[in-house]
């Protein structure tokens, strides 16, 4: 029983962290119509930024400033924001598919830089040397995981409330106005690209926050954490959950992550001995079918966008 709870806490922690990134993406896509194909880069910037600023000194790369945890976390978020700002200035006027591939390129370049620039990021070996806050004073790892889970959920809740307030504000209305009809918004004297850039930067900073929490939880980050798979996972969560709906995004995050992991568990449990070596491949087929099936069943997402009346 304790084992099950321990696992579920662990699962829910990772799902909550991913859900935060989904919410960031929902601000960009669901509310503003920005097709960000580079989620992994902004998530990764938060993760790398945190360990760079908050970790202990390492021989092979820069960093090791051992900053106070919240400061390091904010530092990572600001790094994501900075990258998003530069990328945004260059690409924000691009439309959908073009923006997607441009930002995707940014993510590939980010992963590549982290993999090759050993002086900066430890190279392919990744970055370690981060002490999880309070881990030493909490002797029982189970208790630590529960506390960290609560912390992640609180952050998720905070981000959710912030975004709900934001999209109901005049600014949120403006975002949707630009998404629906840019020219009309322009005719009313609004500057669409400026507004888009703001949404892009804020959304990316939320992804950076998720990345920071992720690196805190694992006390390690490597280029393998920022591969394009991550971008795909976050997107699938949003689309299946329901883009434009924050609750849908969170639901999607938990569901897709559950499908992703539970499929492996079920196969290892129930597949016959002969098939055990092929379960990895079968698992991918199952995940693919679940995603396709959900989209066939409810293409608009489980919780579609609701009409929001801004105050």
């Amino acid at each position: 029983m304790i084992g099950l709870i321990s696992y579920l806490v662990f699962f829910a922690t990772v799902a909550s962290i991913l859900a935060i990134a989904v919410l960031g993406l929902n601000l960009q896509w669901g509310n503003t119509g920005l097709f960000n194909g580079g989620v992994a880069a902004f998530f990764g910037a938060g993760a790398y930024g945190l360990i760079l600023l908050g970790g202990t000194e390492q021989a092979d790369h820069i960093g090791g400033f051992e900053l106070f945890y919240p400061v390091a976390l904010v530092g990572g978020i600001l790094l994501s924001g900075l990258i998003a700002w530069v990328v945004g200035i260059l690409t924000i006027r691009l439309r959908r598919d073009y923006l997607a591939i441009a930002t995707f390129g940014v993510a590939v370049a980010f992963e590549n830089l982290m993999r090759n620039a050993e002086w900066l990021s430890g190279g392919a070996k990744g970055m370690r040397g981060f002490e999880r806050p309070f881990e030493d004073s909490i002797a029982d790892p189970f208790v630590f995981n529960i506390i960290f889970f609560c912390f992640s959920v609180l952050v998720l809740l905070g981000v959710y409330l912030f975004l709900e307030k934001l999209i109901r504000s005049p600014f949120g209305r403006l975002l949707r106005a630009i998404r629906e009809d840019e020219v009309a918004a322009q005719s009313l004297g609004k500057a669409p690209n400026q507004v888009r850039l703001t949404a892009f930067v804020v959304g990316s900073m939320i992804m950076g926050l998720a990345g920071g929490l992720y690196a805190t939880f694992y006390a390690f980050v490597s280029p393998q954490d920022v591969l394009p798979t991550l971008t795909f996972q976050i997107w699938a969560m949003l689309i299946v959950g329901g883009s434009g709906n924050n609750q849908g995004g969170i639901l999607g995050a938990f569901l897709i992550w559950a499908a992703w992991t539970a499929s492996g568990w079920m196969l290892s449990k129930f597949a016959p001995v002969e098939a055990q070596l092929y379960t990895g491949t079968l698992q991918y087929i199952m995940i693919g079918m679940i995603i396709v099936g959900m989209l066939l069943w409810r293409p608009q997402g489980l919780l579609p966008e609701k009409l929001i009346v801004s105050q």
């Binding site: 896509w29 699938a236 491949t281 995603i291």
Partner: peptide
């Protein structure tokens, strides 16, 4: 089927799913 009732993004992610299934069927 998705084209009939969903938007283009549903198609994009369905295509991701299709890619995963195809690739792993081939490797199987």
């Amino acid at each position: 089927r998705i084209r009939e009732k969903g938007d283009e993004l549903s198609m994009v992610f369905a295509s991701f799913g299709v890619a995963m299934v195809l690739r792993n069927l081939i490797s199987l």
